[in-house]
Design a protein around this nucleic acid. Structure first.
Length: 427
DNA sequence: CTATAACTCTCAA
DNA sequence: CTAACGTTGAGAGTTATAG
């Protein structure tokens, strides 16, 4: 029987911020989404105040002042670096590991001593705490879906667990009782829509979903949910995916720091987003066969007139050349741009991706040697990797900072930027 | 009519 | 001072279109 462990960092972004500023230890801390928009991470103190996930920051100003909440802009450089360190530590416990997200990993513990799993989980917890100062919880079960659920129990300290919860050694009646007490929306893959549909069928608890008729779920909901039912029963349907496959599409979109009206500024942003997307594209050695550009106004604004439009082009020849992609992107943008609107966001998507090794030279191409272009892009990428993103970029991106996202509460790059080091040492 | 493409919806972190 | 609400990706299911 397979055994999976799900290791999940507690309040990850908020914990990373606390880690490098001891004065924050017992203070309520939140981390905000891009543009300092919504709350995307909350420390335990903030959760205790009842502040919900995803709430717009401006809506909780009074509460924040009242309780001295400290807010940070998202510092992805810091979080990505800490995440890599966590994965490195987890890798010491098993080579079979799937990095599921920036703060979660699945470990394959099949074949480990069944009686020692819980203790093993505690060792993992302790090791990450000792080496990195981060708290993690561990859920252990025969399927990934159940491991997620066990992790939930570990976090909530359900059934008397402290940071580790092992379903494999729980007796069946106790497990059933536990699943009885957990609402069905806690299950992996059950979101708000599905919760409503299940409620209409009289299914409210995890236990009810587990014991539902799989065929009925397949017919009335979907094959995915049927798989979930089987996983809840302990039949493993989802394997560990150790190797992340290449992306099938690559997106880059962002809200602006303030409304944008002029075509010129939209052009700069679209050029910048294409530059970023193309960098990711080259990072997986692919070429894009199609490009989409999208712009929109603020859908939450009731006073401003609304407009949104997207347009896609099938490229005559698949490419990863930022200059070529920007050329097409600006053409698309000029087609969809309408003056007089307050634009809030632009985005680009690269699709029809294929490995660059498969490139078929077009009969009519050959303006510039493809190898030469590839070398230029490689040089650009290596310079930007070494000296920082945006060191070398296409001129169309411009130098304006007017439309760029708001990050007024950014902490130093403690672990990734030399400038952050003195700050760490001073503390 | 069927196969495929394109688009929409839902979910996740 | 005021207004202010994220990003990226996958997959299934549905609808449109081509042959």
């Amino acid at each position: 029987m397979p055994v999976f462990a799900l290791v999940d960092c507690n309040n990850f972004y908020a914990s990373c911020e606390k880690l490098f500023d001891p004065t924050l230890t017992h203070k309520p801390v939140v981390v905000l989404s891009n543009n300092d928009g919504c709350v995307v991470a909350r420390s335990a103190e903030v959760k205790a105040l009842g502040i919900p996930m995803g709430v717009p920051w401006f809506k909780i100003q009074d509460l924040a002042r009242q309780h001295g909440i400290v807010a940070f802009s998202s510092n992805y450089g810091l979080y990505a670096d800490m995440s890599n360190r966590v994965v490195e530590v987890l890798g010491q416990f098993t080579p079979d590991l799937e990095v599921y997200s920036i703060d979660e990993s699945f470990l394959d513990l099949s074949g480990f001593d069944p009686a020692g799993l819980e203790a093993y989980g505690q060792v993992i917890r302790q090791r990450v705490a000792d080496w990195l100062g981060l708290a993690v919880c561990v859920g252990i079960a025969p399927t990934k879906t159940l491991a997620k659920l066990a992790n939930h129990c570990a976090k909530k300290n359900l059934a008397g667990r402290t940071g580790v919860c092992d379903f494999t050694t729980l007796d069946p009646e106790a497990l059933t009782g536990l699943l009885d007490s957990i609402p069905v929306n806690e299950v992996w893959g059950v979101g708000s829509k599905l919760t409503r549909r299940l409620a209409a069928m009289g299914i409210h608890s995890v236990r009810q979903l587990r014991d539902a008729d799989a065929e009925t779920i397949h017919q009335r909901i979907s094959v995915v949910s049927e798989r979930t039912v089987r996983e809840l029963r302990g039949m493993s349907c989802l394997d560990l995916e150790a190797m992340a496959p290449d992306r099938q599409q690559i997106m880059c979109s962002r809200s602006f720091g303030r409304y944008v009206y002029r075509l010129k500024e939209l052009e700069e942003s679209v050029a910048a987003y294409i530059g970023r997307a193309a960098e990711k594209l080259r990072g997986q050695d692919s070429l894009a066969g199609a490009l989409m550009v999208h712009i929109r106004t603020n859908p939450f604004s009731e006073s401003e007139p609304q407009y949104q439009k997207a347009m896609t082009v099938a490229l005559p020849e698949a490419t990863a050349d930022t200059r070529v992609l920007v050329g097409w992107g600006l053409r698309l943008l000029r087609r969809i741009y309408r003056p007089g609107y307050a634009y809030q966001k632009a985005g680009v998507m690269l699709s029809e991706l294929r490995p660059s090794a498969l490139q078929q030279a077009s009969l009519f191409s050959g303006q510039e040697d493809a190898g030469r272009a590839a070398r230029l892009m490689a040089a650009m990428d290596s310079l930007n990797h070494r000296y920082g993103r945006g060191t070398l970029r296409v001129a169309a991106e411009g130098v304006s900072t007017r439309w760029r996202m708001k990050r007024e509460r950014l902490s130093p790059g403690y672990t990734t930027d030399w400038a952050g080091l003195p700050v760490v040492l001073a503390r």
